[in-house]
Design a protein around this nucleic acid. Structure first.
Lengths: 125, 125
DNA sequence: CTAGAACCTGACATTGACGTCAGAGGCAAG
DNA sequence: CTTGCCTCTGACGTCAATGTCAGGTTCTAG
């Protein structure tokens, strides 16, 4: 498929796909006229890249992990696997903090609602 | 306390504190010579602002929530409370997605480790 | 009093993942 | 053949939070 279709299938912009290729995250075969062509498999690859971006990883970090994803061979595993574990832990810590923030928001909302109840009760007099 | 102390206590840069004030997220009393002074309470306020930044909220969004935090009065509650619930849900969705990403990383790591076991077994021959 | 921190304002620089535009070529349908 | 859409490269624009620098004032310790 061509770049436009991949973009819509993966829910990203054409610009982003070209950017991913520029960063070395995504490869494409080129037609005689130079147009990029992709396979079905690239759809999930792009969505996975998006997940990693959403998890706060940068292009540089993702590059270090992808070889481990692509070919679970031996040499990359040693370095990339450790990098991966490291990012996993970072992500885990981040999740913990976000949950704490969510709890804080819940607490504030509960307070605000209680305050409103209080006001309504006062109005009833 | 002055700005340098607040910065180190809250773990942010002096520049950031001035930026927060510029954005209306933080206020300070000024000494006769124009220096900013803060209270103990501002320490947790700044750390809370940091939490919200870490949760992906922008200055503009935080501004909409803070009145609700500061004074849980009536008028702001209606608009700000809804905004708050909305951001809470967005955050919750984000957490869910991050957990899914973490699971994906765990899966990849398990695969890589299994592959390594497999190789080691083959080497043993 | 004086040196060296810490503070002030104001402005420009940075970073990363894109958006957007220009100018040119490719491709299918009528 | 042409019309219209898709694609190409290359380059500049954006946004938000923060770094950084300049040039000047203020506080504090000796």
């Amino acid at each position: 498929m061509r770049i436009g279709e991949l973009a819509s299938r993966a829910g990203v912009s054409v610009r982003s796909l070209r950017y991913y290729e520029e960063q070395g995250l995504l490869t494409s075969t080129r037609s005689a006229s130079g147009q990029r062509h992709y396979t079905e498999h690239d759809v999930e690859r792009v969505t996975f890249i998006q997940r990693l971006y959403a998890a706060g990883l940068s292009s540089r970090t993702i590059i270090e992990l992808l070889p481990c994803v692509d070919a679970p061979s031996e040499e990359n595993s040693d370095a990339a696997l450790e990098r991966m574990a490291q990012e996993r832990d970072r992500l885990s810590d981040h999740i913990t903090e976000l949950i704490r923030t969510r709890d804080a928001l819940d607490g504030l909302m509960a307070t605000a609602r209680a305050h409103r109840e209080c006001l309504r009760a006062a109005m009833a007099h």
